[in-house]
């Protein structure tokens, strides 16, 4: 059993609260990514789980057992560091052997476990190399083999890919995910790269200022953000300030825009309408249907075209469209209409 449970876990450094009362349950074999801006407390949370930071409050349970006060060497967790943290004075197989010896794995078993772990990460034949003689990607694989050889209850990753170049990062991301699923180890993965979090995780924990903003599968986080912060932080979003007039959203500048009914009790306080740019339909000409506006800017972004449309009210809306044919291009200054499926426009408190 290697489920993880964080119960109102908090950490205060001096007089700054790095992490405030985090509650989270991670299921057996699940990969959970911690995503958030710099300084939001991702690393601190992970280091509390690993035992390097003593929590100021709350508790950590692994498989139902409280391990909050256990020293890091008795936690049976494998951590992969951003700097790889290989032992520079040991070769690859000595690096992998270190943990096996520290945990008193029988001598006869060690060689086999090293071979198996290196095979798992595709580094057979590199046993005698020193860390300095390996590329960044290979070093991170050794770090991975080093923890996998121990068959830990939990894998902890702190931005393990951010020192690699973009292409390798994408490749390693998939390798880590595949390995994690093969071995079936419960994992936490800290990153500030949302694409990484989206592709690697079963669930994403979005953090901000030491608190959890939202927890959910990647698609839900993207399609159904529950707070302004999440809508703004994940992907691109149009966020229009305004208020609810009965059932209709009215922007601060006076535009009446279609939206899904709110899933919170309206209080009359200002709300925000959030809609993704790719969910918006844009039609040329000033005809029937949709909200009229004018194209202010058109930018080609690879396979996409991005339009900035100014509505009659003065609100600006960002729209993304697949760039299928130059015949469809809209010119700057052209009158257009924008519309969307009401369910894609969500109200946030």
């Amino acid at each position: 059993m290697s489920t993880l449970k964080l119960q109102s876990l908090g950490k205060v450094f001096g007089n700054t609260a790095a992490v405030e009362k985090i509650d989270l349950e991670v299921g057996e074999g699940e990969m959970v990514a911690f995503l958030g801006p710099s300084g939001c407390g991702k690393t601190t949370t992970l280091r509390m789980v690993a035992g390097f930071v003593e929590p100021s409050s709350g508790s950590i349970l692994v498989g139902g057992k409280d391990i909050t006060r256990l020293p890091p060497n008795r936690r049976n967790m494998g951590m992969v560091f951003q700097s790889y943290a290989l032992f520079p004075h040991m070769n690859v197989s000595e690096n992998v052997a270190f943990g096996l010896k520290a945990r008193h794995v029988p001598k006869g078993e060690i060689a086999g476990r090293i071979t198996a772990a290196l095979e798992l990460v595709g580094l057979s034949g590199y046993e005698a190399r020193y860390p300095k003689e390996l590329s960044g990607g290979q070093q991170q694989r050794v770090a991975l083999a080093r923890v996998l050889a121990l068959r830990p209850q939990l894998l902890l990753f702190d931005e393990p890919l951010s020192n690699l170049d973009a292409k390798l990062r994408v490749q390693m991301r998939h390798e880590i995910r595949t390995l994690q699923q093969e071995v079936g180890i419960t994992s936490l993965f800290v990153t500030h790269d949302q694409e990484e979090a989206m592709t690697i995780a079963d669930r994403i924990v979005v953090m901000n200022k030491g608190r959890i903003e939202q927890v959910g599968p990647p698609a839900e986080i993207y399609d159904n953000p529950r707070t302004r912060f999440v809508a703004d932080f994940i992907g691109a979003a149009n966020l229009v300030e305004g208020r609810l007039e009965g059932d209709v959203f009215q922007s601060a500048r006076g535009a009446r825009l279609d939206c899904a009914p709110p899933d919170f009790a309206p209080t009359g306080a200002p709300v925000v309408l959030s809609i993704r740019p790719e969910k918006i339909e844009i039609l040329p000409g000033a005809g029937e249907g949709g909200t009229p506006g004018t194209v202010m800017r058109a930018t080609k972004l690879g396979g996409l075209i991005e339009y900035v449309v100014e509505l009659a009210s003065g609100d600006t809306i960002l729209v993304q469209k697949q760039d299928r044919s130059p015949a469809d291009h809209l010119r700057v200054g052209e009158p257009v209409r924008v519309s969307w499926n009401t369910n894609d426009a969500r109200l946030l408190p």
Partner: peptide
């Protein structure tokens, strides 16, 4: 920290 994490006292 890696050493501690790997089980070394």
């Amino acid at each position: 920290e890696a050493a501690r994490n790997l089980g070394a006292g």
